[in-house]
Nucleic acid binder design. Structure first.
Length: 485
RNA sequence: GUCCCCAUCGUCUAGCCUGGCCUAGGACGCCGGCCUUUCAAGCCGGCAACACGGGUUCAAAUCCCGUUGGGGACGCCA
């Protein structure tokens, strides 16, 4: 089994592409096959090095390792621009066999005709006008300026009969050949085009299964014609349905984040994203959470859904929270460190881990963990207005003061802190919840936090005292920020 | 416009191929309860779907046809 992921480097690796890559990767790993990464950069005006970097970065982050190709020199991904000579010779082969012809129509003319056809409600298909031109003069077709005019090389697509795509996820699909037009295989600058390169490359790389988005389904019959022209054996095809946005339109930037990197920045774990993505279109009974090993062991093309799926951030968030509960904190350290560095904070790994452990139960993303770390930093004095208004009222003053006194006097350890609360509950007749809440807000600025003893420990005696004192001062001065919006 | 794909809870899906076990299962979210030092988490419970219309059959979510709706493609992009 040999598969490939073949992105065009015109932008980031988006979640749709990532899922395609993931399915290919899982298929290869499951069958002990080979997974290649091939950069389809023949459109030199749109391909960029940055995009290639972004794709490799995204794949690496997701843990989708690609294999090296025996015919290629190194471990670097295969790039079509390195293989132009092969496409040229393959095009020449078809030309010599009389299966192509020169098309002198300019891009502008074609575009104009297409627009007009569309406007008249006709099929915007190439009319094949250059097909009948006499041009088989035996001269080199590779010369752009043959007889003074540039030309593109078109493939004579059979117009009779039908082409059947036997798709592994969609089933048997029949296309009438007269629907297909004569596609350009070499542009007028003699560079090859997509449909041609894919076929040449997939054959050259001995790809056995072409797993890709179903936006390529309509290209498949054209490609099959090319396979036939070359008398190449056909690979198996598997077309994956699209990922949609909440409005059921194809997922795009306007639906929010689509770049894989954006998810890293939002504090998602790569394993969680992978787990989410794999369930978008694939299932294994009722199972929702999978380890990477389980995925590799259980993945199969049989259980891929043929209908499109809506991307749902809520579920991704839930999965991420689920992973956060059990992940080894150590593996998340670099990411959290990075998140903190962006805020100009340098915090020790031990400290980050400490906070992580206290907050993992209630955090959904690494960003929330970073927020927690930030919140415990000495000098942090932000109080959420809503939490402050509710709990840090003048009524809380006596209690806050009493707590300060007791905390200052006692050893800074959990048993004595429990004793403090016991004392205060006895003195006031209040329940723990009533007492802990104002303190929590004074300490963390939020009405949500880990247990109060954990918060105290994470803060340390001096900082804890300082925070409560600052709240007391604000209250006594009569105008704390949270009460004067 | 033409061609292609798709159609089960709001969302992801199981079931469909090989009709009966489906008074349609799971998950996210939502609602409620329990637990509790807050909030979460966890646990328990609830709401919620076979797009519609025709067939075929003793029997259809499952098979067939049509309709509607959604998506995709129709580039010298990939």
């Amino acid at each position: 089994m040999r598969v490939r992921f073949a992105p065009s480097p015109t932008g980031y690796l988006h979640v749709g592409g990532a899922r395609t890559a993931l399915f290919n990767w899982l298929f290869a790993r499951h069958h002990g096959g080979t997974f290649f990464l091939r950069i389809e950069d023949t459109d030199r005006t749109r391909s960029t090095e940055e995009a290639i970097e972004a794709i490799l970065d995204g794949m690496t982050w997701l843990g989708l390792s690609w294999d090296r190709w025996e015919k290629a020199p190194g471990a670097a991904p295969i790039r079509q621009t390195d293989r132009l000579a092969l496409y040229q010779s393959r095009a020449r082969q078809l030309f010599d066999a009389g299966m192509t012809y020169r098309c002198y129509c300019s891009a502008e003319e074609l575009d104009a005709r297409r627009q007009e056809a569309l406007k008249r409600g006709e099929v915007p298909k190439y009319d094949g006008r250059c097909r009948s031109l006499a041009h088989d003069d035996g001269r080199q077709h590779s010369s752009v300026t043959l007889d003074g005019r540039p030309f593109a090389l078109r493939f004579k697509t059979p117009q009779e009969g039908e082409t059947v795509v036997d798709d592994l996820v969609k089933g048997r699909i029949v296309f009438e050949n007269r629907q297909l037009d004569d596609l350009i295989i070499l542009r007028s600058d003699q560079t090859p085009t997509y449909n041609f390169c894919v076929v040449v490359d997939d054959v050259d790389m001995a790809i056995t299964h072409v797993i890709r988005g179903d936006d390529h389904l309509n290209n498949t019959p054209r490609q099959i014609q090319l396979y036939r022209a070359f008398k190449f054996p056909l690979p198996r095809f598997a077309h994956l349905s699209m990922i949609l946005g909440a409005d059921k339109a194809r997922l795009s930037k306007r639906h929010g984040a689509t770049a894989v990197q954006a998810y890293r920045e939002m504090g998602y774990l790569p394993d969680a994203l992978v787990n989410y993505l794999v369930r978008l279109g694939w299932s294994h009974g009722d199972q929702e959470v999978f380890t990477r090993e389980e995925l590799v062991a259980q993945f199969s093309l049989d259980h891929i859904t043929s209908s499109p799926a809506v991307f749902n951030t809520e579920k991704l968030l839930w999965l991420n929270a689920t992973y956060l509960k059990t992940v080894d904190p150590k593996v998340t350290l670099p990411a959290i460190r990075d998140l903190l560095a962006r805020r100009g904070l340098l915090v020790s790994d031990a400290r980050i881990e400490d906070v992580f452990l206290a907050h993992r139960e209630r955090a959904r993303t690494l960003v929330e963990i970073a927020d927690a770390v930030t919140m415990y930093e000495p000098g942090h004095r932000r109080i959420d207005a809503e939490a402050g208004q509710k709990f840090l009222t003048p009524d809380a003053l006596p209690f806050l003061k009493r707590f300060c006194d007791l905390l200052r006097a006692a050893p800074f350890e959990k048993p004595s802190q429990e004793q403090i609360f016991a004392t205060m509950m006895a003195e006031t007749g209040q329940k723990m919840a009533k007492l802990a809440q104002p303190l929590r807000v004074a300490l963390t600025g939020k009405s949500v936090s880990p247990g109060i003893y954990d918060v105290l420990r994470l803060l340390g005696k001096d900082e804890a005292l300082a925070r409560v004192a600052s709240v007391i001062r604000a209250l006594e001065e009569g105008k704390p920020d949270w009460l004067t919006p």
